[in-house]
Every structure is written in structure tokens, then in C-alpha cells.
Nucleic acid binder design. Structure first.
Lengths: 219, 219
DNA sequence: GTCTATAATGGGATAGAC
DNA sequence: GTCTATCCCATTATAGAC
């Protein structure tokens, strides 16, 4: 049965490519695009450089595949806010939790994406434009819907979302510095739980207060 | 007068080195450490590669000098919180403003530093340990002093500070993505003002609420 | 699909004249 | 301090045998 053979081969190919990209994510995150040599990735994945280039003809192809998988993975876990209808407070709590979970479980993915954006997204700006921006806009619309329904306070939805992203993603991107401050080798589950409490409280406070005045305070 | 000549030469040298590092910050931020060629930096600064290497014998020396200047600049603008004694609300407002100002006026500095940290701070971890961490710890102590005096709500000071950092720094580091969402070429002054309002309100809400419950909500 | 070999390029760094 | 010339190495990518 040639069909079976072909299928098995294809399965093996997929599996091997997955192993390669899994290593590539880590190396790209730690060394940057230019700092990553495909020989290092190949070594970590347990095959020769030339063999890797059979599966990924160029370094850019490997990099873009890595970014694609990072984005796929992230989008798959981040449908929460769009699927609204529930209590905004619970939706936002779940959203923060999901983002923090991603930062904890997939720090390299977050870092590769972050480095690409920090560099100005020279290679991935198009994908961000077509795949990320529409989703963000949809999330912002959810916020504004809540506001118009009087369910949450009239905050600036765009910047609130930016704030949530920044706070949660930083636990992947800047964990090295955080670990130095906290005097440990790496962040623990408890650190993420503490972070979750602080962030959730801040976000809920932001949408709860009817109209927090930006100047002056009470007697 | 040889003394004058020497002084003038030293001044010129300082000025030239400043021009070199000013260009280097931008290139390192856009291309990463490995992605940056000293030839490119030299070109942008208007001198030859070999001439640049007269002032900075190695690429690493140039990079570390860039990071040193970034950190010097940042520390110089960030004494605000430590010099406390005032109303916590005003101190925190000024702190957020100062951090956002730095992000707006010096985005490349922020990005170079961010990329180094994201990569795990392989070359600058020591300096972060000795120069940044003590300052952060001091800021955290200020928070905890406020808490013990009953001036602010009992929040987790460490993670609140992480949150403030993340929110403010992201307007430098992730401005490319934000600009795509906001559909502009780059962030405007108004965007930073909007951001300031949202962030300040969130931070003040976080320290104002006596004890924000992390579950359930009022009637 | 995997291997050996090899092109071809770019970039960090050095030597030495002026 | 600035220039020309050059070395040396790492790395991407290709060619071709098996």
C-alpha cells in the first residue's frame, strides 16, 4: 500500500518539522534572528545542518514558520474575549489568566514575537496587519460595546487592552530581569499567581470605577 | 599651549564617541546585536569601519558602551520614586509620566535594553544585578513603607512595580504593533497622553481601593 | 532523505603607511 | 587619528553521490 507509506512518511515529516521548529523557537528567542545559526538549531534538533535545509530551504523560511506557529498557538488560546456575552469581569479575568498562562507555558514563543515587533516587525508586519490587528480591533469593539451598555466604566478601550497585553506578556519577555529582582533562578508558579491577582485587580478596578478623575484626590 | 590642544582633542573625541553611540543605539535596536554590523554603524555615523574601531576596539565594547549610556540616561531620569516623602499619588503619577516620557523620547534606548533582557541578559546581567536591582528594591521598599503607614492599599509592591514598568515601557518596545492597531505610521503625542491617563488611573485605583477582592462583585 | 564536499559571502579584527 | 589592504573565520546555501 503506497498510500500508507506516503502517509506515514508525511506524518514523520510533520513530526520532524515540529521538532525542528520547537528548537528553533528557543534559539531564535535567545539569540535573535541573525544570532541564530541553522547549524545550532540542527544540532539541538539532532540532525545535520544540510538535512535541516532539506526541510526548510532557507533560514528565513524557518523563521517565518516559527513565527507562524507562535501566532497560531497564541490565536488558538486567545479566542476568549471575542466569545463574549458573559459578565465582563469574568471575561477579563479569564483573558488575563489565559495570557499569563501563555507567558508561563510558552515563554520562548512570546519572546520571539516580541523581538520581531521591537525590531519594527520587518519580516512579519504583514501577518500582524492581517491576522492580529483585526482580532485586536474586535476585542476593542467588545470593550466599547460593554461601555455603551453601561456594563463597565468608560475607559479608553484601546489603551486598556495595550495595558493588559503589556502586563501579561512582560512575565515572559522580561522574566530574566524579574527573576533577578526576586532573587531566584526563574519565576515560580506562585509568582504568576501573585501577578495574576495584581493584574486582575488593576483591570477590574479600571473598569469598575465610574469615572476615575485623573487629577486631584479626596479630602 | 599643549594643554588646550589636548583638552580640545578630548572634547572632540567625546563628541565623536557620542555620535557613534547615538547611531549604534538605533542600529542595535533595529537589528539586534548579531544583526548589527559595525560597518553599518560607522556608515551612519559618517566614518569608516576601521576608524570606528579605533574608538571602540571591539563590537562588544561598543555594545556595552551603548547599554551603559542607556542605563545612565534611564537612571538619571528615574530618581523620582526614591525621593519620596510626598503624596504617594503624586509621586506615582510623576513616575508614570517620567517613564512614558522616556519611552517617547528615547524609544531606541528602551528597545536595546529590552532585547538584551529578552535574550536573557547574557552580556548585561551583571550590570542589571548591581545597578538596576538595588534601585528596584528601594522602590519596592518605598511602596511597602507607604503600605505600613496606611497611605496606600496593601498591594503586592513588587508586581505593581512590574506592572508599571511593563505598561509604560511597552509604548517604546511595541510601538510598531500599536501603530498598526491605531492605523498610523507612528504613535502621536496624543496617544501617549491617552496612555498616561489610562495607566495613571489604573495605578491609582490599585493603591486606592482598600482591599480589592479578587473574586465576586458587589450588588 | 541523508551524506560529503564546496562554493560564496559577509563581517570582525589586525597590520602598517601616512 | 585616519587610511588602504588584508587576514580569518563563521555561516548561508548549493551540488552531487549514495
Amino acid at each position: 500500500m503506497p498510500t500508507v507509506k506516503i502517509n506515514r512518511r508525511l506524518l514523520n515529516r510533520d513530526k520532524l518539522e515540529a521538532e525542528i521548529t520547537a528548537e528553533a523557537v528557543r534559539v531564535f528567542a535567545e539569540c535573535g534572528y541573525e544570532g541564530t545559526s541553522i547549524a545550532t538549531v540542527a544540532d539541538n534538533a539532532g540532525l545535520s545542518k544540510q538535512n535541516l535545509m532539506y526541510y526548510f530551504p532557507t533560514k528565513q523560511a524557518l523563521y517565518q514558520r516559527v513565527l507562524d506557529e507562535v501566532l497560531d498557538d497564541w490565536l488558538a488560546r486567545m479566542e476568549s474575549l471575542a466569545a463574549a456575552g458573559q459578565d465582563p469581569r469574568e471575561v477579563l479575568r479569564a483573558y488575563v489568566q489565559a495570557k499569563l498562562k501563555f507567558s508561563r507555558e510558552n515563554p520562548w514563543a512570546s519572546r520571539v514575537y516580541a523581538m520581531e515587533v521591537i525590531s519594527g516587525a520587518p519580516l512579519y508586519g504583514g501577518q500582524i496587519q492581517t491576522r492580529v490587528v483585526p482580532l485586536v480591533r474586535k476585542d476593542i469593539e467588545v470593550f466599547e460595546q460593554w461601555i455603551s451598555e453601561g456594563k463597565i466604566a468608560p475607559v479608553n478601550a484601546t489603551h486598556l487592552l495595550f495595558a493588559i497585553w503589556a502586563m501579561t506578556q512582560s512575565y515572559a519577555d522580561f522574566s530574566a530581569q524579574m527573576a533577578l529582582v526576586l532573587n531566584r533562578k526563574q519565576l515560580t508558579k506562585k509568582d504568576f499567581d501573585d501577578a495574576e491577582k495584581v493584574i486582575v485587580d488593576m483591570v477590574l478596578a479600571a473598569i469598575s470605577v465610574p469615572q476615575q478623575p485623573s487629577g486631584g484626590d479626596g479630602p
